[in-house]
């Protein structure tokens, strides 16, 4: 029951999902529309519980056990609750405010302000660090040890130089050559790899529907 029922659901919903593409009958299409617009959307929204629940549990356990750096967990928990309260009760559109005021004098702490003032700088700067790590790795690890690696490097150099407007002034043909590399040999290689990926997706989807791939059931009974 604990494993067979979910596997049966996967089989039935999977087969129906396939049928929606090949059977244009109104009954199938209407059912599909209801499943997508009502059922999947609502169930999908509840999946939020998994993510938020796991984060909160992780941080509350850290706080309770006073694990290393547990004090920072309070920042996550408080920030989560405060921003959720502002968003849930302060509304989304500033012209249609919710029950919670979202400004003190001229200072607005509306959900969009939290987004542009906190989420954008933090998220984008964390990824901007990659520029430095990549530069360091280029200096330390990128070695033309053999013919294949040298080929890779030459291709990369042409792309890096060809992509810049300034190099057009130095070597007129460089941007077109870079574009040719992307459009011809690169396309051939990526298409060959793409076939493998598409076949992999196909095989995985089939294995899930037929119950051969069961990793998603997790451990336990």
């Amino acid at each position: 029951m604990k494993r067979k029922l979910p596997l049966l659901i996967v089989l039935v919903t999977g087969i129906f999902g396939v049928l929606t593409y090949i059977i244009p009958h109104p009954v199938v299409q209407t059912t599909d529309s209801v499943i997508r617009n009502d059922i999947l959307r609502i169930i999908g929204a509840f999946s939020l519980v998994l993510g938020i629940g796991s984060i909160l549990r992780h941080h509350f356990i850290k706080i309770k056990r006073k694990s290393e750096n547990w004090g920072y967990s309070w920042i996550t928990v408080v920030a989560l609750f405060v921003s959720a309260v502002i968003g849930l009760f302060g509304g989304i559109d500033p012209t249609r405010p919710g029950i919670l005021p979202t400004h003190i004098g001229g200072f607005s702490f509306h959900i969009q302000s939290l987004f542009t003032g906190l989420i954008v700088p933090l998220g984008s700067t964390m990824f901007a660090l990659l520029a430095f790590f990549m530069a360091s790795a280029s200096y330390r690890a990128f070695r033309a040890r053999n013919f294949e690696a040298t080929l890779l490097l030459i291709s990369a150099f042409i792309l890096m130089l060809g992509a810049m407007p300034l190099t057009r002034l130095l070597v007129k043909e460089l941007p077109s050559f870079a574009e040719w590399i992307l459009a011809v040999p690169n396309t051939a290689a990526k298409r060959g790899i793409g076939f493998g990926i598409s076949l992999g997706i196909l095989a995985t989807s089939l294995k899930i529907i037929l119950g051969i791939e069961r990793g998603w059931l997790g451990g336990g009974e």
Binding site: A131, S138, Y139, R143, L153, M160, A163, P165, L166
Partner: peptide, 19 residues
């Protein structure tokens, strides 16, 4: 674009000097 150009040249030099 100016920064991007300068950075690309710097990375190419990093790779060459590293090698």
């Amino acid at each position: 674009m100016s920064s991007q150009t300068a950075a690309h040249i710097a990375i190419i030099l990093f790779i060459i000097v590293g090698n």
